[in-house]
Design a protein around this nucleic acid. Structure first.
Lengths: 231, 231
DNA sequence: GTCTACATATCGATT
DNA sequence: AATCGATGTGTAGAC
């Protein structure tokens, strides 16, 4: 990895056109040839970048560019998409290279999978007398997150999301339409369960007779698991 | 901005739990206190990070951690969400600080806005005899990208996407349902236009009587505009 | 390989 | 401030 701090301007042409006026920035050159242009603030997203696979070539500035104070030009191109990034460097303030090796990668514990497991174990949260049929109940158009039965024995299809958005309601609606055509299952009611349900999504769901259930993730996972080992 | 190359392991606890085993990585500390952990490959997304506003504090390793070879511990916390990132440093290979100043920011020309403008100008792409009524035609549930009339004078609602996904079809469906209840407009037909339409989305759209239109962005914008100035 | 769903998404426009 | 839609989305899993 090569790290360069430089006063530079940047131009990108590809799926859109973008320009960065002259300023001091970090240029991060990764081992796979990709380039990231970072400022000293904002989120993890670079101001501009080029994704691998791509190739960097340095271009000699012409007389006009030299007059403008440009000492070096980097041209990064991606063969497949014809995207191109051009960095015009006015002054290099730092330049260092480092050997990092291959990264073992991130190990993560997901949220939706964990939520699904917890809700399956705590199926009473759907209401008194509910019983679990199965998780990932398969239908022709995809798996329903949880299938349960209510106290009266009627089928209940549960769609789970971390954030309950309008497309989650649409998804559950499609499942319900399909399942209600199956005489072995019908009538099937729907429950839209999420840590947080957007007002628009709630309105749409309730308008369609779908029950909304807000889940308290922290309460469900309790206080004694691996999640809290850092604190 | 402070740049540190170090052998380290990283733990994150917040909306999920994640762990990075020991390896050599770049730690980027931005002026706003945010921290990015980058490997020497992959995309522009860091392996792990903490978004601003957050605060970094260094913690003294205890005896057990010193035995394990840890020389320094960084603890980055976000006050509002209680997210926490812990970096355990085994060896520092590089450490430098740089003054970057505030970035003037990115100037970009969007894609969907540009596509919409081009399609409005080239409304014949919808079919012979089509005329533009207006862009961003307002309805109770939001603006329809383009409203036009076909050769017979019937209303045509166009939903425009760069990538035609299933939720674009759902969105257009909601607009069509609403608009077809308006006697001044009905009957309204739908056109789902995108640079690329996913098969599932196409199937759903055609099943609902919505016409699909694949747009050639390059052909629409021609070859003589600012897009090509870099080449 | 393609395609679909999810994300510690981030980001801007608009209400 | 909250919400919605787009993103040069990226990324992992299923088929």
């Amino acid at each position: 990895m090569r790290l360069v701090i430089a006063r530079c301007s940047v131009d990108y042409a590809g799926r859109l056109s973008a320009h960065l006026p002259i300023a001091t920035r970090l240029l991060m050159l990764k081992a796979d040839g990709s380039l990231l242009v970072h400022s000293d603030g904002g989120s993890y997203k670079p101001l501009n970048w080029m994704s691998p696979p791509c190739t960097l070539s340095t271009v000699e500035p012409d007389a006009e560019q030299l007059d403008a104070g440009i000492t070096e030009i980097w041209r990064v191109t991606q063969a497949k998409t014809a995207d191109m990034l051009v960095v015009s460097i006015y002054e290099v303030l730092h330049d260092s290279a480092h050997e990092l090796g291959i990264d073992p990668g991130l190990q993560k514990d997901g949220v939706e999978a964990h939520l699904q497991k917890l809700l399956a174990e705590q199926i009473h949260l759907l209401g008194d007398g509910h019983t679990l049929v199965r998780r990932e109940y398969m239908t022709a158009i995809g798996p329903v997150d949880i299938l349960a039965r209510d106290a009266a024995g009627a089928a209940v299809a549960v769609e789970l999301k971390r954030r309950g958005d309008i497309d989650g309601v649409e998804q559950l609606t499609r499942y319900l339409e399909l399942m209600n055509r199956d005489p072995h299952l019908a009538p099937v009611t729907g429950v839209f369960a999420a840590q947080e349900i957007k007002p628009q999504a709630r309105t749409l769901a309730e308008d369609r007779g779908i029950r909304c259930l807000v889940l308290d993730y922290d309460a469900m996972r309790g206080l004694d698991d691996g999640e809290s080992r850092l604190f």
